[in-house]
Design a protein around this nucleic acid. Sequence first.
DNA 1: GGTTAATCGAGACGGTACGTCACGTCTTAGT
DNA 2: ACTAAGACGTGACGTACCGTCTCGATTAACC
Lengths: 189, 189, 189, 189
Amino acid sequence: MSNHEPVRPGRKRSEESRLAILTAALELTAELGYAGLTIDGIAARSGTGKQTIYRWWPSKADVLLDALATKADLFVPSPDEGDLAEDLRQFLAASFDLGNRKPLADALRALMAQAQIDTEFRERFWTVFLQRRREALRVLLDRGDLPTSVETATDVVFGVIWYRLLTDRPLDERLAEELVTLLSERTPS
Amino acid sequence: MSNHEPVRPGRKRSEESRLAILTAALELTAELGYAGLTIDGIAARSGTGKQTIYRWWPSKADVLLDALATKADLFVPSPDEGDLAEDLRQFLAASFDLGNRKPLADALRALMAQAQIDTEFRERFWTVFLQRRREALRVLLDRGDLPTSVETATDVVFGVIWYRLLTDRPLDERLAEELVTLLSERTPS
Amino acid sequence: MSNHEPVRPGRKRSEESRLAILTAALELTAELGYAGLTIDGIAARSGTGKQTIYRWWPSKADVLLDALATKADLFVPSPDEGDLAEDLRQFLAASFDLGNRKPLADALRALMAQAQIDTEFRERFWTVFLQRRREALRVLLDRGDLPTSVETATDVVFGVIWYRLLTDRPLDERLAEELVTLLSERTPS
Amino acid sequence: MSNHEPVRPGRKRSEESRLAILTAALELTAELGYAGLTIDGIAARSGTGKQTIYRWWPSKADVLLDALATKADLFVPSPDEGDLAEDLRQFLAASFDLGNRKPLADALRALMAQAQIDTEFRERFWTVFLQRRREALRVLLDRGDLPTSVETATDVVFGVIWYRLLTDRPLDERLAEELVTLLSERTPS
DNA sequence: GGTTAATCGAGACGGTACGTCACGTCTTAGT
DNA sequence: ACTAAGACGTGACGTACCGTCTCGATTAACC
């Protein structure tokens, strides 16, 4: 039997505070934007102390990332219809839906921004968020024939999604269809 | 007869100060990273006053953007070899070279990050930088047959470039070749 | 024949600007208080350049002092009724009237304040303003018998006036009468 | 039983910082004069943060006033020798001594100056400093017969002292003696 | 059941940078 | 030479947050 958590004496971490902090982080980001999100603000809104936040998260970006992971519905399917084009269509539809949810998209853009400025957060963001999306897509792509390597195809898909997000332009049906066309191996006539 | 400059009274803007500020911004970004770049620091390094900076630029991101536009060699060609694949190859080679110049790439990533957090800067960054690149590419793409719309192809190219930059992964020859393959209309047999 | 003002080439000093500056200084002091009085503000209000102000006055306190001397009615009589008590009564009445004119009193208090902080202005304020008042009073006091030296009596009179001004308390009839009583040699019965 | 201190949560105010700030304020005033005293300077010299100063004092004048009250020896006796003239002589001697201590006198002049410019500080200066002096003197004067009301006599004493201070002239023995003579009821023959 | 220890809300602390204000100087074109 | 306009370097302002550090109170495991 494992004993990962050596039983320590002392007060347990408060789940109540944890949730209050994550909720406050999401609310404040929605109300004020990421630029207006501060540790002081989260503490005040959640009725907790700053120390409690610093004890469990390295930065406000990590709080927000945790909040999204905990509270937002970020599920993206890895469908297996036996047809790459159809699987990809579904994957893109689900991903585009997330990207078109304004407050969620704002938060994700902010995290990607923070990842550019804070090197340590960049690695956590990559591991916790970006890489998981990539692996979900890779499962699909591995099953079909592609005009490019799987890695490049992955970069094309996420590259376009992020580029549209970051330049504040919508992810629409037509784009999805063009991507599907582009990445499905065209059979010579 | 032209009368472009309505001849205002008062002392002229100091070109010397302007260049000193732009130089200092580039140096400090290279030395300390964008996170370490401050208006106070730029003023101190350039031997100017903070007010002079605030008088002419809305934010430190704008200073840096202006510095790159003024001082960095950001030229990307719009070659016309009569062959889309070859033109695209050259365009990508030049673009990838810029993206692989570390200090420049760091600055660009920081500006893209800032654009996510500061709405007003986002528009300026789009107009002054991103849109111009898109138009240079569009000239090429308009000349050839593409498997997708020109806009989507543009988003694919810049999407992949930015996605690689933002996730701190290199832009290599192989990626360029795959993009060229992907975007050149494959002739049916 | 006198030639006090050596005829110099170039534009003459603008009397119009001078008066506009003095007027603006008084207005701004009345509106914003001395703390809100600035050289920038005077220049803007008067429609002149800052340089014009600096060319002719060493500090904003000097502008205000000049404005009072030029524009305010600061006359205090040196009556000679043949009776020290009566002369003093009249002198005090006139002085108290000045001290009870609120905007004027505010300006004088501000100048006395400035004199504490700016050593050079202190001397000018003493010479141009305070000493002249003292001499006007001395003329009176020299004519009568006093229970103290003339200098002390002068300090008592102006000391009480300034102390009341500076502590924002009124100069009233009763105080004047008590000062007259105090300073008129009481004849032994 | 008493419950004077409602026991607030959180870290206690640092007495160490408080004293360091007051000491720095006095030192800097002595070294640079009141005009050279800045909040930045006090923070730097005392090794504290500016916020700590702003948290507890409304202005630099209040810091200095607090410093004088805490650190300077401002004691003035209210002697009771049974003789008004003698009591007054002693009171004046003590007061003049304070006024002749150059650095202290400079600080007091600066505070009186600040009180002219800053209305809110004026009230604090009156309550905390001036009024207490007046009451100490009133105790004396109430015991004897005066040629004037007690209030006027108080104004005469402090008026002369402040007027001499503010015009940068010494407080000497002779002045004290003349004031005693003036304010002691001369017995009719 | 008392002891020990980790956590909690609260809030003061030393810092750093912010964006603004006013200073006194300078440069410009015009009178 | 003087003027109005206004940009310049300088320096202090008062504020916002940062991340750390006491506080006293609370809560759990351990003896």
